[in-house]
Design a protein around this nucleic acid. Structure first.
Length: 570
RNA sequence: GGCUAGGUAGCUCAGUUGGUUAGAGCACAUGACUCAUAAUCAUGGGGUCGGGGGUUCGAGUCCCCCCCUCGCCA
């Protein structure tokens, strides 16, 4: 039994996420966690909400609520959705937790002691009316290049020119609309990542089995331009972790907070403290401190490609720079983007399917299966309603669901709702066992390698093997001349349902539970030995014929949904 | 403009360190079966592997140039 620490990139708090966010981190992380648990390993699977920063403040203001109250409510919403998708976090934390506040301040102090922090004086746009500094994106004005009057401080949406807030003509605050803006001097802490360049490069070079997507993005940032740049880790905001040194105010940093990207990854660790404080676990350090038992932990992070630089460079700089024996990530699984019907999912324009809407249309398993079997691993992937309908109907309803139906209904009709007795395994059964043996080992190999699509394809092939067996052994024909042999065949088929429940659980946990319930078993043990696994349900064991496991998506529904989600979300 | 990743059957994708007739699923066609959610199983048609050069006995797989898509950075 091995120990696996798994974290999913933590979703931002400002709204409900779309399906792309789900498939890029939380869902594959859940798949992996469920698989490892199924194999009997010890797993700690953590996720949280990322709550700090200006977007949260603005979203709260728009909702007319204090930011902490807004975050608490949105946390509940996201937690509920995560539950809806059956994400099996051991704990779903919050980056605004007290634990994270303390740990973030601790890391900053350690970094400062080790010479990893520098203080830099900068000029930044200040809004007198709002009484605060404005991030580049929150200054708008007329583009000096093309004259577009809604250009943002970082870039003009019209001509795409990169801008500096000071370039804008008639700049105004996005928050209040005030034009009473001025450049003011402000001081910030920078994380001296550049000091870590060699160490990071060596570390990344040593990771030969990481996805190319992960290492290529990391190397690009390491070598781009002047090389890895130092990064500001403080902001002039009210909402965040207050900048402190050793528990006391940090001279010159009064009223400032840490940048959201500094405290967010630290939440991975703090979340395990929350997990303990919530009474769900006893010892978080044995997962995170290599001097306290975490030496044998395998740590895997899941994330979308936009998060890779922070996880390959910034956070490791924090860990290395602390000079303390924190557990470093062993494998970074990154994903490309999921596009929606020829374009991008867009939170701002309400284009595509959002997580709450998805759950209101169909049960979680439908989405889990489609998203995971089409995970954007090697390149961006595309969601279309046609593809979704066809894949789900074919794979889940026809191949798997119908298999369960035909087996249970056939048995009920010929032998009653008990596992039939008599007969022995012959060549057909040996062939089935041999194929399953090969395929299940392949499935394990893909899962161990965190190969999501290939795992899905192999699982599907395992389901197909059941249909092939039934088709070639044809118990409905055998029954007419040799009912005892038909009984043996039917017994094998019923056992396949339990076996498939075990194997399928990481992908489709609810359907797996239904399958297990229908064969009235609770034996979730992994099939190390296939022949033995097909004998778990003995003759005489009762079962119930289940309702349709997966209903089909109709053409009418598809057309309706296509129209509904093309436009704008209210 | 620079950099990354891609461009393989109608669609979605696999293709290990270059090696025999380029694979899978879906879709399509034909056949089998009739236990089952008009489900299943079998067989078959279909690709000059973005384009052009080059290295090699041999390249989807290596090198160079060009075209297109996505993203990041200027």
């Amino acid at each position: 039994m091995a120990r696996h620490l798994i974290t999913s990139a933590i979703p931002y708090i400002n709204g409900i996420k779309h399906l792309g966010n789900l498939v890029g981190s939380q869902l594959p992380a859940d798949l992996y966690a469920r698989y490892l648990r199924g194999r009997g390993h010890e797993v700690l699977f953590l996720c949280a909400t990322d709550e700090h920063g200006t977007p949260a403040e603005l979203a709260a203001a728009k909702a007319g609520k204090p930011v902490d109250e807004f975050c608490r409510e949105m946390y509940e919403v996201q937690a509920k959705i995560a539950e809806g998708f059956r994400l099996s976090f051991d704990h779903f934390g919050r980056s605004s937790s007290l634990q994270n506040r303390h740990l973030t301040q601790h890391f900053a102090s350690q970094l400062a002691k080790n010479g990893m922090i520098s203080e830099v004086t900068e000029q930044q746009m200040y809004s007198v009316a709002d009484g605060r500094f404005l991030p580049d994106r929150y200054v708008e004005g007329t583009c000096p290049n093309c004259g577009y009057d809604n250009a943002r401080g970082d870039q003009c949406d019209n001509c795409t020119k990169q801008l500096d807030p000071a370039d804008l003509i008639n700049p105004r605050s996005v928050i209040s609309g005030s034009t009473e803006l001025e450049m003011r001097e402000t001081r910030h802490l920078h994380l001296r990542q550049s000091q870590m360049k060699e160490k990071l490069a060596d570390w990344i070079d040593s990771k030969k089995d990481w996805p190319i997507l992960t290492t290529s993005i990391a190397k690009k940032w390491l070598n781009d331009g002047d090389g890895l740049a130092d990064r500001g880790i403080t902001r002039d905001l009210a909402w965040g972790v207050p900048v402190q040194y050793e528990g006391a105010p940090w001279s010159g940093m009064e009223g400032k907070v840490f940048y959201v990207w500094f405290d967010a990854p630290i939440e991975y660790i703090a979340c395990s403290q929350e997990w303990v404080d919530a009474g769900k676990g006893a010892d978080w350090e044995r997962w995170w401190r290599t001097d306290k038992g975490a030496e044998d932990v395998t740590y895997t992070q899941f994330m979308g490609k936009d998060n890779v630089p922070f996880h390959t460079l910034s956070f490791p700089s924090t860990i290395f720079g602390s000079g303390e024996p924190w557990k470093l990530v062993d494998y970074i699984k990154s994903f490309n983007y999921l596009n929606y019907d020829g374009g991008q999912f867009s939170t701002s324009r309400g284009r595509g399917v959002f997580q709450d809407q998805a759950l209101s249309l169909l049960p979680a398993d439908y989405w889990r299966w489609w998203l995971l079997s089409h995970a954007p691993e090697s390149s961006d992937a595309e969601f279309t309603w046609e593809n979704f309908q066809v894949s789900v109907n074919k794979d889940l309803a026809d191949v798997l669901g119908n298999l369960v139906s035909r087996v249970t209904k056939f048995c009920r009709a010929k032998f009653g709702e008990v596992v039939p007795e008599g007969g022995v395994f012959g060549p057909q059964e040996e062939k089935l066992i041999a194929e399953l043996e090969t395929r299940i080992r392949a499935y394990e190999g893909f899962m161990d390698a965190r190969e999501v699509r290939k795992s899905a394809a192999e699982l599907r092939a395992i389901w197909v093997a059941g249909n092939e067996y039934l088709q070639s052994s044809a118990p409905w024909t055998v029954f007419k001349t040799d009912p005892v042999q038909a009984a043996a065949q039917t017994r094998v088929a019923l056992n396949l349902i339990r076996l498939y429940a075990v194997l399928s659980r990481p992908f489709i946990p609810d359907a797996a539970a239904s399958m297990m319930a229908s064969v009235q078993s609770g034996d979730w043990s992994w099939p190390e030995d296939v022949a033995a696994a097909l004998n778990v349900l003995p003759a005489g064991h009762g079962f119930t014929t289940p309702e349709v496991l997966f209903r089909k998506i109709t053409d009418e529904e598809r057309v309706d949904w296509q129209a509904r989600f093309a436009g704008t979300r209210d």
